[in-house]
Every structure is written in C-alpha cells, then in structure tokens.
Nucleic acid binder design. Structure first.
Length: 595
RNA sequence: GGUCCGGUAGCUCAGUUGGAUAGAGCAGCAGCCUUCUAAGCUGCGGGUCGCGGGUUCGAAUCCCGCCCGGAUCACCA
C-alpha cells in the first residue's frame, strides 16, 4: 500500500532530518481533497514537536526528502500545514494492471479462524413480514456477505419463534371461524392467512372483554378470564404436553406460514445456512438455569421463581424462570446461545435485532458470563434503529404497517412505470422486462435501506415512493448499464484491449481520480466489515459511480484516437463495472446489462 | 427517575482514529442530447453542525453541564 510505504519513508526522513525515532503509524495520510493539487496528503501539525520548525518549513523539508527518496513521489506542494504529494502515473497504472486481472479484487480469502454466526430475521409465525423485518433481513444478510468478503467464515442463521401463546391464538381462531380455509382453497399467502386469524382472535377477544366489563367485571380480570384466552391457554398446555391433535394443526398452520415466508425471502434475496426453531430449543435454557442455581449464581424467591441478581453491575434483578417453572424469553435465549456455541464454536455470536432490545442482550451476555461461559464475550448485538413513518412508528392497530410483499410489489411497479415513461428497451421480451423491473425495484429498495447507518433510526415515507434519481440504487445500476453498453460496442467493432500497451501512458485528471477510487475498494471492505456497516459500501459505490459518470462525460472512450488511450479507458471502464458489481453484490443488489 | 442511543441545509442522509473553506441527494432556479444510454453531466441559492463551557496548534468529531426526541428499565417476545 502506498500509504504505508510513505509512512515508512517518513520515519526515515524524521530520523535523518530531526534525529528522532518514531513509529510509522504517527503519520496521518489522507486522500488529497479534489480542490488541491496532489494525490496523498500528509498532515504535518503533529510532527512539529519533532522538527521544532514552522509547519510550512517542516512540510517542505519532508516533501523534498520524499521526492528525492521515493520514485513514486514525483512532486509536492505545501498549503498551510498540509503536505500534498503527487504520486507517479506509473504507480497507478501498475496498480491498475494488477488489480484488473483479479476477479476477486477487494475480497480477502477465507481465514482459518473460528466462524462468525449471525442471526437475523427471527420472525414470529403469527405475523407477516413488514418493513421493520425488511431492514433486519437486508442488514443481516449484507453484513454476513461483507464479513465473508473480509475473510471471515460466516454462518447465517434464523431463529423462528414458532411456539407460544401467539400461535395458539391463530390456531384457535382458525378452528372456530376458519371454515377449513387453507392457502390452497383461498389462494391466500400462508403467512397472511394465519396472520389474519391472529388479528381475528384479537378482535373477538376484545369483544369478550368488553362484554365482561359491561357486566361489571374489572378490566384486568376480564382480560384474564375471557373464555377465548382461557381456551388458548389450554391449547398451549396441550401443545406442551404433545397433544396429537393440537400438534397436527400446529404443524399444518406453521407449514403455511413457512411457505409464505419463503416466498418473501426469495423475492428479497435472503437466505440462511441454518434455521433454528424455538419449539426445538425452548427447553434448553432451563438446564442452564438449574446449573446456575446449583452453583448459587442464581437464587430462588419465596414463590419459587428464579432470578439473577445484576444489581452489582448497575442493572436490576432479572427473572429467569417463572414460579410455575415455565421459561421466559431470556431463558430461551440462554439455551439457544449455548446450542449455537456447541454447534459452531464461533468467535462471534451476532444478533441482528432492533435497538429496542439493547437491554435484553446486555443482560443475556452478563448472565452467561456469570455462568462462567467465556464464549459469552463473543456475543455481539448488532443493534439497528427503527424504521419510522412520517407520523412515528408503525402500528398494526392503526393500520400503518408497511407489508414487505406489498412494498416489493410496489417497487417493481414503480420501476416499470418509470421505465415505460422513459421509453426504453422496447425490444425486450416480456420476461426480460419483468426481470429488469424487479432488479431495479429491488435495487432501489435495498439501497434506500442499506445506505443509512444501521445504528440510526430511519424514515420511510410511503407517499413519496423511493427515488430512482440521485443517490440511489438505480443510479449505480444505470452507470453499470452504461459501461456495459460501451463494452458491447467495443467488442462489436473488434476492439480487444491489451494491458501491456498501457505502461507508458500519462493519466488525465479524471482517469487518475477514478483509479484512486478503485484503489480504495479493499480498504472500504475492511472498514465496512469492521464497522458492520453496509452503508459504507453503499456510499462508496455511489462515489465511485459518480466518479465514473464524470469521467464518461469529460472523456470519450471509443472515439479516442490514440488506440492505447482508448483501450486503457475501455479497460478502466470494465474494471469499474466489476468493482461496482462486487460492491453492490455485497448489498444483494444486481446490476443490469442494459436499462 | 436510572441506563442507553440520537440531534448536521426546507426534506432524506454522508462526514474513518480530532485536520484545509462542513459535503451529497431530493426539492427550487439556470444551462447541456446531429457525438459512447439525459435514470446522466454542469452551475446557482441554501448551515449558529441542539445550547453553553472546557481540552489544543486545530473540535461536527473528545470531556462536562443543560435542552429536545426516541428506546428501555415486564412473570411480553
């Protein structure tokens, strides 16, 4: 890397000029801002205590030294305390030649470390996926891909919450009022169908409560004693006891939901290496809790409930088992964490879960540590911000939930309308058109969501549909299509560029700045992997595409008269399209050949 | 009330471990298609980086206090 090479050289300079020994990492090197001449900039302020000279004098001395000692440094200028270095075209060309031959440019090969297990999606089987899940899924999937690109071995896992009172509610409502309705007979998507019965239960339940309150019952009491909820609880008991009939219905309705989820995941482009089901893991936590009780890490209250005391760590007491011995959310997560550790022995257990659960994961980690699980150190809660609507959070009661399937459909439709208005590709077959609209619609959606820093709350306005102009997925797709178009034309006219011809070229400004951006790609992947941030990939891709569009606008490629230059620009374009594909691939966004 | 997160242009968002005059997009205005795709390019206007202190050569960035918004502190998940 050029930066570290210069830093090395600067340590020698400081040694020679100022008789001081320093480490290379004290030098601050950054990309020279476009308004100044040069490629790399050294900030000299921190070096003044070594030189005991004015900033300009120090910068000039170092600049001279570097220019003399390093063949790659061809010149410099000094502005205030900033030393701007010019790097030889030959260096950039050499880099380009090498990088362009590497199809995996920017990607690290898999290291031999323990794997990272990343959980995302984690749906409930009583609710169809909505916008919040979309952010979760896209983030989880993309972070997993970015970690892979950064050389990690990664397992993507899902944890389906398929048991509990909520699914009994849907089952009960279906039994009472479902009239044997199935996805097959109704044509309705399975997750939607089951979700509807969950809502129906809630409606009927509320009616019962209201009726009881009218008869003079206390509201809380009514909620606990309404016949429907009693029946649902009874069903849950039967479920836990393994009652055949209940289990059969449960299996059937869950299978409808899974079919529905699969459709949604597929369209979203989300996949998993393994799916865990709570029905298969919810008992595991109890063993851990008992272990803690025996070791007197946990304690039992008079009513028989089991707790973990975290007050010495500034938190509260946390319930781990109810008085009746049944488990709570935390119990389950203790168990699944242990199971996942046993399955993979990972270096990191990541959970992509909204920031509303920060406390839960904080406690989870601490409880496991108290139990002496050293691997709990590897638990990492990738806590992302909520997606809000203009009037606040999504609320199912107010009907403001943005359904994932509807949203994707709408995106594809908008892509179609926009394309038709622009009157492009009339020669496409219907299948090609549909595929393209899907690509554009999903690209816009994914980019819109992933370009925002995961930690931050983001806003989605359903009335202003997601843009196709400016800083968008479409912009990058369009840039790619443009490049591919030029490459097709070059091929059609029999041009076959040769890398060996570029060696002596001198670079135009826009050519160099484009190479500069391409040169950064490996570091961008590392940084994004470090920060678990697809947003960094998105922002980089945008800058790169913008840089290309300027290059494209200012210089002609095919019409360039000098064949060596023409070929170089072609190869540079080709390589740019490759990096764009790589980068956007990490976000799950496909780039079209034409649009 | 305790803890945690956030506050940057009218709107949506960038801003690497502190570095040059705080940047994009959208929206608004003005240009650019007889030349490789105008879903593009160029220009203009738009800011007390919530407020006040501090640290230092230098602060949107670090520290302290305050204001505002959100989350959480469940025998819900």
């Amino acid at each position: 890397m050029m930066e570290s090479k210069i830093a090395e050289s600067l340590t020698k300079a400081v040694k020679t000029l100022y008789q001081q020994d320093v480490k290379p990492d004290i030098f601050q090197l950054q990309k020279t801002r476009p308004e100044f001449e040069g490629d790399l900039t050294v900030v000299v302020f921190p070096l003044l205590r070594l030189s005991h000279k004015a900033p300009e004098a120090t910068a000039t001395e170092l600049g001279k030294w570097l220019t003399e000692q390093m063949e790659e440094v061809t010149g410099f200028n000094v502005i205030k305390g900033f030393l701007n270095l010019e790097i030889a075209d030959a260096f950039w060309l050499r880099f380009f030649k090498e990088a362009a031959e590497n199809e995996k440019f920017g990607f690290k090969s898999e290291q031999n470390d323990p794997p990272v297990v990343i959980e995302y999606s984690s749906p409930n089987t009583n609710k169809p996926l909505h916008l919040g899940h979309v952010r979760n899924n896209l983030l989880g999937w993309s972070v997993a891909e970015i970690l892979r690109a950064g050389g990690k071995k990664v397992f993507k896992v899902n944890l389906v919450n398929d048991r509990g009172i909520h699914i009994c509610k849907s089952m009960l409502a279906w039994k009472k009022w479902g009239k044997e309705k199935t996805p097959g007979t109704s044509g309705q998507k399975g997750d939607k169908l089951v979700g509807d019965f969950y809502v129906l239960f809630d409606k009927k339940y509320k009616e019962q409560i209201a009726g009881l309150v009218k008869q003079g019952m206390d509201e809380k009491e009514a909620a606990q004693n309404a016949p429907l909820i009693l029946e649902a609880k009874e069903m849950l008991v039967k479920w836990e006891a393994g009652d055949e009939e209940v289990r059969k219905l449960w299996n059937e309705m869950n299978s409808w939901v899974y079919a529905g989820f699969d459709t949604t995941y597929q369209r979203m482009g989300i996949d998993f290496d393994k799916i865990y089901y709570e029905s298969q893991t919810y008992l595991l936590g109890k063993a851990l809790v008992n272990e803690g009780l025996e070791k007197e890490i946990f304690f039992r209250k008079e009513d028989g409930s089991v707790w973990c005391d975290l007050t010495d760590e500034g938190l509260d007491e946390k319930l781990l088992l109810r008085a009746d011995g049944t488990s709570v959310y935390m119990t389950q997560d203790l168990g699944t964490a242990q199971l996942r550790y046993d399955d993979y022995h990972p270096q990191k257990l990541m959970y992509v879960v909204g920031n509303e659960q920060n406390y839960h994961f904080d406690v989870l980690k601490r409880v496991l540590k108290k139990l002496g699980k050293s691997w709990a150190e590897g638990i990492y809660h990738l806590s992302y911000g909520m997606v809000e609507l203009p009037h606040g959070k999504m609320k199912s009661r107010e009907g403001t939930v943005v359904d994932a399937d509807d949203l994707m459909e709408e995106m594809a439709n908008t892509a179609r309308k926009t394309s038709e208005e622009l009157g492009k590709f009339d020669d496409f077959t219907p299948e090609e058109s549909i595929r393209l609209y899907e690509m554009i619609g999903m690209g816009a959606l994914k980019y819109f969501i992933l370009k925002v820093d995961p930690k931050k709350t983001m806003l989605f306005n359903p009335k202003e549909s997601i843009d196709f102009n400016g800083n968008t997925g479409s912009f990058i797709q369009y840039t790619h299509a443009r490049i591919r178009s030029v490459l097709r034309k070059a091929k059609a006219s029999g041009i076959t560029p040769d890398k060996e011809n570029i060696t002596g070229l001198s670079l135009e400004k826009k050519e160099k700045s484009l190479i500069r951006w391409l040169y950064d790609f490996p570091q961008i992947i590392s940084a994004a992997a470090e920060a678990y941030s697809p947003a960094q990939i998105a922002n980089y891709s945008y800058e790169l595409a913008k840089e290309f569009n300027q290059f494209y606008h200012e210089l002609s490629i095919l019409k360039e008269e000098n064949p060596a230059k023409r070929d170089f620009r072609l190869m540079l374009s080709d390589f740019t399209s490759q990096v764009l594909r790589s980068a956007m691939g990490l976000l799950g966004i496909e780039l079209p050949e034409r649009m």
